[in-house]
Amino acid sequence: MIGKIATGEVEDERDEVKSAAAQLGSLGGRKRAESMTPERRAEIAKKAAAKRWSNGA
């Protein structure tokens, strides 16, 4: 079935509905960010950027 969808023989008819857990997960990060101070968010972002750029590049 996957092959037929990929080649265009069959149309993918599944619903693009997220599971309940996925819907709640997408809200979690936003709620967490709202509860933090701008300074704390900046601290986390700087740490993530440093980690991202320090990996052998």
Rank of each mutant, 00 (worst) to 15 (best):
I5G: 03
K46L: 14
T37R: 04
K47F: 08
G25E: 07
R32A: 15
R32Q: 12
N55R: 12
N55T: 13
K46N: 14
P38E: 14
R14E: 05
R14Q: 05
G56K: 13
A21H: 06
E34C: 09
V17W: 07
G25D: 03
E34S: 13
S26A: 07
E16D: 14
R32Y: 15
A42N: 03
G29S: 11
A50S: 12
D15L: 04
R41A: 02
R14A: 03
R30W: 12
Q23M: 15
V10C: 01
R14L: 04
E16W: 08
K31A: 15
E16S: 11
E11H: 04
W53M: 12
R52K: 13
T37L: 08
M36D: 04
R14C: 02
R32P: 04
E34V: 10
K51Y: 08
K31I: 15
A57G: 14
G56L: 14
K4Q: 11
K46T: 12
G29A: 13
G8I: 01
K18W: 11
M1T: 10
D15E: 06
G28C: 12
E13Y: 01
P38M: 02
T37M: 05
G56F: 12
R41Q: 07
G3R: 03
A22L: 11
I5M: 06
A22T: 07
K47D: 14
A48V: 13
S19K: 01
A45T: 11
E9I: 03
R40N: 05
M36P: 00
S19D: 01
M1V: 13
A22C: 01
S35C: 04
A20P: 10
K51T: 11
K18G: 05
A45I: 08
I2M: 11
E43W: 00
D12I: 00
I2R: 12
R14S: 10
G25M: 02
K31E: 14
P38H: 02
M1R: 12
R30A: 13
R14Y: 01
I44K: 06
A22G: 00
M1D: 11
A42K: 05
E34Y: 07
R40Q: 14
R52A: 11
T7Q: 07
G56W: 10
G28N: 08
R30C: 09
A6H: 05
E39N: 00
I44W: 01
G25P: 00
K46R: 13
A50F: 06
T37Q: 03
D15T: 01
A20V: 10
E9S: 03
G56D: 10
R30T: 15
L24I: 03
I44S: 02
A21L: 15
E11D: 06
G29W: 12
R52T: 09
K4S: 08
G29K: 09
W53Q: 14
M36V: 04
G8H: 00
T7P: 05
S35H: 02
T37W: 00
D12W: 02
K18L: 15
E39A: 06
T37K: 05
R32W: 06
E16M: 09
A20H: 09
K18M: 15
A57M: 09
A22D: 04
N55K: 14
A33I: 05
A50C: 05
I44A: 02
K46H: 11
E39R: 03
R14W: 01
K31W: 15
A22F: 03
E13T: 08
K31M: 15
R40I: 11
G29Q: 08
K47Y: 05
S35L: 07
